[in-house]
């Protein structure tokens, strides 16, 4: 087999992994910190992409477009948060409802079209897959590394503040948080907003990277996000104890995910089967703590304690 072909694909896989790493950091906030599985992200990532595509193709500065994508993502999170806290709908279902609603909203944003192309030669974009093998600062990997570092540092500081600690307590133990005077419902909404803001921002970056926004571009995004979180924890978890370190793990997890996907494709897997493979891999990793628990129980029973 042609190893060169594989190595040629690595820079692309790394860039893509870094973009999805930003997204996975958003997932980490809900899944690990708030202890909520938020399915809004399948919609909000595409929303970020749509907002960025429409704004950039109308000649607006890409930085402004990315900022707007972040803000619109906050609103998507707010919608899920209100479904959950003000209407008492379970978190998973709230996310699914918002995700469905966002499908229509995303089509509206793109003027009724299912996709919007962002021609790199015509518009100014922050990153593009064209420069993926460029040996210059134009290479998308450079900016993505900077953005990842800035995001991780910002979150590290935020979750170290008084309010950030209150949010972590909300996810760790709601009863304790309320007994300490923390408004857990408001906190859950804030966490969902922040998470979806980041996810939407990553969608805006993905649109620029791939040169188009598509209403389907984030289908199954939650699974890729979870895969990145779990792979990061399993592979690098022992190396990092600090909060920022854990976020680095998440980003690295996404990069590994795309490298592995690149390898299985190179080995001859049909592209259409990728999502199934991802789902199965994530299912197995999610089962690990459960299986570990069963094994421990068995040991105890054998010993007769």
């Amino acid at each position: 087999m042609e190893l060169v072909k594989l190595f040629n694909a690595f820079p692309g896989a790394i860039s893509q992994g870094l973009v999805w790493g930003l997204m996975a950091i958003g997932v980490y906030i809900t899944y690990r910190i708030l202890d909520v599985a938020d399915l809004t992200v399948d919609g909000s990532m595409a929303t970020g992409g749509a907002v960025a595509a429409v704004m950039i193709t109308s000649g607006i500065d890409p930085w402004v477009a990315v900022l707007c994508a972040f803000l619109v993502g906050l609103l998507a999170g707010l919608m899920t948060g209100l479904f959950h806290t003000a209407m008492g709908i379970p978190a998973i279902l709230s996310g699914i409802l918002t995700q469905l609603a966002l499908y229509s909203i995303n089509l509206r944003i793109m003027g009724g079209k299912a996709n919007t192309a962002v021609n790199v030669s015509k518009y100014h974009v922050l990153i593009t897959s064209r420069n993926v093998r460029a040996l210059s600062l134009e290479n998308p990997i450079c900016l993505l590394l900077v953005l990842t570092a800035v995001l991780i540092l910002a979150l590290h500081f935020f979750f170290g503040t008084e309010y950030g600690c209150a949010l972590r307590a909300t996810g760790a133990n709601q009863n304790m948080a309320r007994a300490q005077g923390i408004n857990t419902r408001f906190g859950t909404v804030v966490g969902l907003m922040l998470s979806n803001g980041i996810v939407s921002f990553s969608g805006a970056m993905l649109t620029q990277y791939q040169g188009f926004a598509d209403v389907q571009m984030a289908r199954g995004a939650i699974v890729i996000g979870l895969a990145a979180v779990i792979i990061g924890e399993v592979v690098f978890g022992k190396l990092f104890r600090s909060f920022w370190g854990k976020l680095i793990c998440v980003s690295l997890g996404a990069v590994i995910y795309y490298l592995v996907m690149q390898i299985v494709l190179w080995l001859g897997l049909n592209t259409n089967d990728l999502k199934m493979l991802t789902a199965l891999v994530v299912a197995v990793f999610l089962a690990v703590p459960y299986w570990k628990g069963l094994a421990v129980q068995k040991k105890i029973r054998k010993r007769g304690v």
Binding site: F158, G160, T161, E162, Y163, G164, C165, A166, Q180, G181, I182
Partner: peptide, 12 residues
């Protein structure tokens, strides 16, 4: 900090 305002700008 029970019962006090928890600031997002002050260290926890």
């Amino acid at each position: 900090r029970r019962g006090e305002h928890r600031s997002p700008f002050r260290w926890g």
